Simulated scan of single mutants.
Amino acid sequence: MKAVKEEILKAHAYRRAIKEFEVDQKISEEDFNFILEVGRRSPSSFGWEPWKFIVIQNMELREKLMEPSWGAQKQLPSASHFVILLARKGDEMRVGSDYLSYKSKEVDKLPADIEEMKLGFFKGFMENEFDLTDDRKIFDWACKQVYLPFANMMTAAAQIGIDSCPIEGFDRTKVEEILALESVVDTNKFGVAAMLAFGYKKEDSPFPQSRFPMEEVVEWVK
């Protein structure tokens, strides 16, 4: 058990936000499927999994994404694999939507009474506890869920020696317009939450990893 803990902490200490990758070094299909599987198995509030992962390997499309993606100027052309993480929009996540019905019935295979109870709890959660009362609030909440697989995929990659970079530096509207024009994303259902680049770093970061000390991050209430 101690060795497992050490390996996990080692992976977290190893991970950096890599700005440029070795173009000629590619991640194996097996390794990248492992990273995606970790993302797929990530938890989400109410188990709704309000996400989709788009792996952009088409270099012409990556080139088109360069202009509105100021935070990915070096990663888009050099990453072995480039992932755009999508979050479901308001109409998809409201009680009564085709998506929630499909997830409940076909994926989770809930009995009718359990489905009705779950949707009732979720409706109350949306309207009362979390005030998810308009499209933007619902989308932002869905984006919060996306950050669970977002983080898990980076950690999983680090554990097998693969580098990554989380990216929020982009114009969402322009990126979505490009993806819609290329028939990659149905923007009536999905919006872009974040981007992730994977590969093998071109060079080590000149800056050591820094974090607040434990006593500044954690407060115990006994």
Rank of each mutant, 00 (worst) to 15 (best):
R88S: 01
K137D: 08
M153V: 13
D31C: 02
M117F: 13
K105Y: 04
P149H: 04
I27Q: 09
G169D: 14
R211Q: 12
F46S: 11
Q57W: 00
G169K: 13
G71Y: 08
Q57P: 00
E116F: 06
E29W: 03
F212L: 15
V95S: 03
V185L: 13
I18N: 04
K19L: 07
V184Q: 13
P206H: 05
R15W: 00
S69G: 04
K118Q: 12
P68N: 07
E92T: 06
R88T: 01
I167P: 11
S97K: 11
F21Q: 01
S104V: 03
G47S: 11
D108L: 15
G199E: 09
F198S: 09
G124N: 15
R15N: 01
H12V: 10
R136H: 07
S101P: 00
E49Y: 04
K26A: 11
N128S: 14
K52Q: 12
D98W: 06
K52F: 00
F139V: 12
G161H: 12
E203A: 13
L36W: 03
D131N: 15
A87Y: 06
M117A: 12
E7R: 13
L76V: 05
V218E: 07
R41H: 10
D98T: 10
N128A: 08
L36E: 05
Q75Y: 03
P166G: 14
V38H: 07
S97C: 07
M117S: 09
D31G: 01
H12C: 09
G191Y: 06
A197H: 03
P77E: 12
Y147E: 04
M126V: 01
D91V: 02
W48D: 00
D131V: 08
K144M: 12
E63K: 15
I138T: 10
F170S: 10
I138V: 15
A3C: 00
E20Y: 04
S42Y: 03
